[in-house]
Write a protein that binds this DNA or RNA. Structure first.
Length: 324
DNA sequence: CACTTGACCTGTCCGC
DNA sequence: TGCGGACAGGTCAAGT
């Protein structure tokens, strides 16, 4: 699901693909929730304007427009932003939106997941003629640029949203005011991280690092991965975690996120980058979605439990539960 | 106030 | 084969 590394991958892709392009038309194919702005304001501020920059804060993507407005986007769980060149076949990996019949685990573990796409292609999709074609059933908003290329905002589950704000107002958006520091910026020191986590001494360590007001951008995948790296059980209360372990946890968050950005993010089910391609971090994951498989560190079978209301993956040997 | 749970959605998988 | 229910998880609102 789009967490910090996935959103950053999309941002970098868009930076190469849409800077300078001029918007010719905007079409909203869905309820106002996907695009709750006044349509007249949207067309006034967007039509004829050009894309000047792409930014990211936490899991929020920011696309700056020449009219001093910014498209603020949250992909939530199943959102995608896909760029398609004029006249080119849309590159969206067909199995991503067509919900292949394969179990995600088998998909993730398949050594050559892409090699047999062709077979799954015809067999799995309900409508072969629409395979990989955009817009599709999940498309919410379509931007057409003057050169004939398109940008699609897709979201199967409609949790995501895209909203237009005057650029100077972006820092005043409620979420932006409350969100915690960026984990990959040097300005976040280990001391500050420990202090922020310690404010929530009575809850579980996993719930705390998922809290966007404590630290930005950590979601379920990288929470499980970084806790495994620190050998901390996700249900451990913060008060039972040492300062040293908290410092190491920040290091692990940084390590897994940097690797994930290198790998182009994690595609569990729906995530694709700005060119419609899947990320490969999931193949390097050490616990996430690996229940029933061997822990890569000690060989113990990885278990799936529930912590902070989320599916949670742990090695019961490396990450023993605290006695509490 | 601190913390947990449910709602928002759609599609898939599993058991009966 | 069909059907109901559990599940997936980012964030906010409501509840304890």
């Amino acid at each position: 699901m789009p967490e910090l590394p996935e959103v950053e991958t999309v941002r970098r892709g868009l930076e190469q693909l849409i800077i300078g392009k001029v918007i010719k038309q905007v079409e909203c194919l869905d309820s106002p929730k996907s695009f709750p702005n006044d349509p007249i304001e949207v067309s006034t501020q967007l039509i004829g304007a050009s894309i000047v920059a792409t930014r990211r804060r936490a899991k929020v993507l920011l696309i700056d427009i020449s009219t001093n407005y910014t498209l603020v986007t949250h992909l939530k769980m199943t959102g995608q932003i896909v760029f398609v060149k004029e006249g080119s076949t849309p590159p969206l990996d067909p199995e991503v939106n067509s919900e292949s019949s394969l179990h995600p685990l088998k998909l993730a573990r398949s050594a050559r997941a892409s090699a047999d796409d062709g077979l799954r292609f015809g067999a799995g999709h309900p409508n072969d003629s629409l395979i990989g074609d955009l817009p599709d059933r999940s498309t919410r908003i379509v931007y057409e640029f003057t050169d004939g290329s398109h940008l699609y905002f897709n979201d199967q589950r409609k949790f995501g949203w895209m909203k237009l704000y005057p650029t100077p107002e972006v820092p005043n958006i409620d979420f932006m005011r409350k969100v915690g520091p960026e984990p990959l910026e040097d300005s976040l020191t280990a001391d500050e991280f420990v202090a922020r986590v310690r404010r929530r001494n009575n809850t579980t360590i996993k719930a705390v690092i998922l809290d966007q007001t404590v630290i930005a951008g950590v979601g379920n995948i990288y929470a499980d991965e970084s806790l495994w790296g620190t050998k901390l059980h996700p249900a451990t209360r913060v008060r039972d975690v040492s300062d040293g372990d908290l410092r190491q946890l920040l290091d692990e968050i940084r390590v897994v996120m940097n690797i994930a950005i290198e790998k182009g993010g994690s595609t569990d089910r729906n995530y694709v980058n700005a060119e419609g391609k899947k990320g490969s971090y999931i193949d390097f994951a050490r616990v996430f979605r690996r229940e029933g498989l061997d822990c890569p560190r000690c060989g113990t079978i990885i278990e799936k439990i529930r912590v902070a209301g989320r599916g949670t993956h742990v090695c019961p040997s490396c990450q023993p539960p605290s006695s509490d």
